[in-house]
């Protein structure tokens, strides 16, 4: 149908432009993967012969032997998993409460929570850091996980979701005198799994990639997340003689996320863009 509206020549031209752009998008990634297989002393002199020998796996064996990358990954996994599970629990409960139940002051509380969506992280990071320092929470997993639990995005998403599903089943259960919490656990929770998946993926990805808070909270190298560990290794980039090793670390850190992306692409796209569209 589109072809009948739009000229064939124009279609070709647009396709060529988009493919050229796609090559620009991929080139930096392949460049870095290529360099990660080159010996460091060769890269120091020239990066011209990317596709010709010598190649080496030394940068990768060095990661296994010397890099702290595994420890950072473990920290990231703990923080991201903890944050995801807690966000899901808090948001699902609150979303149900706002969408389906009524209690005195509900409207006021909901408006206050919605207003929290407008507060950027940077507006509260200085006082938050002071509060966590007072409570000795820096360089702990709890300290890394907690701040984003207060972001109302998930509550908003779950409230919208619960408003969209029919209430008849719950009304029937109410007539059977089932307790409110039992209804939530047995009926509502299973129904909310699609929304939980969306919110869960979004939260995990955000926590895994988070930069500013772990930068100021995790100051001990053994508490670094993957993002902060990689940041620490590239601060003296200009002087480094181990560019190949740095690139191998980047590939090693980026590949798991990219592979997950290829598998769960549909869910990730819905999770990342779905929340904003509502």
């Amino acid at each position: 149908m589109r072809a009948s509206i739009q000229g064939r020549f124009g279609d070709r031209l647009i396709l060529v432009a988009v493919v050229a752009l796609a090559i620009c998008w991929l080139a930096p990634i392949f460049w870095v993967i290529g360099l990660s297989f080159k010996p460091n002393d060769v890269i120091m002199k020239t990066t011209g012969g990317l596709l010709s020998p010598p190649f080496t796996l030394k940068n990768y064996t060095d990661i296994i032997a010397t890099s702290a990358v595994f420890g950072w990954m473990l920290n990231s996994a703990i923080v991201a998993t903890g944050q995801t599970l807690l966000t899901l629990a808090l948001s699902t409960l609150a979303g149900y409460g706002f969408a389906r139940t009524d209690f005195p002051g509900k409207r006021l509380v909901f408006v206050a929570v919605l207003a929290g969506l407008a507060v950027p992280e940077q507006a509260i990071i200085v006082p938050l850091h002071t509060m966590f320092a007072e409570a000795n929470l820096h360089n702990t997993y709890f300290g890394l996980i907690a701040p984003r639990l207060a972001v109302p995005f998930g509550v908003f998403l779950m409230t919208q979701y619960f408003r969209g599903i029919p209430a008849e089943i719950e009304e029937a259960a109410m007539l059977d005198n089932a307790s409110r919490f039992k209804i939530f656990l047995r009926i509502v929770l299973p129904l909310s799994i699609p929304a939980q998946a969306t919110l869960g993926i979004y939260t995990f990805l955000h926590a895994w990639n988070e930069y500013f808070w772990p930068l100021v909270s995790a100051t001990k190298p053994e508490m670094y997340t993957l993002t902060i560990g990689l940041a620490a290794t590239q601060t003296n980039f200009a002087q480094t003689e181990g560019i190949g090793f740095l690139m191998a670390q980047a590939v090693f850190a980026g590949l798991p996320v990219l592979i997950l992306y290829l598998f769960f692409q549909r869910h990730i796209v819905t999770a990342v863009s779905g929340g904003f569209a509502k």
């Binding site: 808090l90 409960l93 149900y96 409460g97 706002f98 389906r100 139940t101 109410m174 409110r180």
Partner: peptide
């Protein structure tokens, strides 16, 4: 909204 308006319902929202 399903059910009556009670203070107890606020417990759903309280943790967050």
């Amino acid at each position: 909204v399903v059910g009556r308006r009670t203070w107890a319902n606020g417990l759903f929202v309280l943790p967050f």
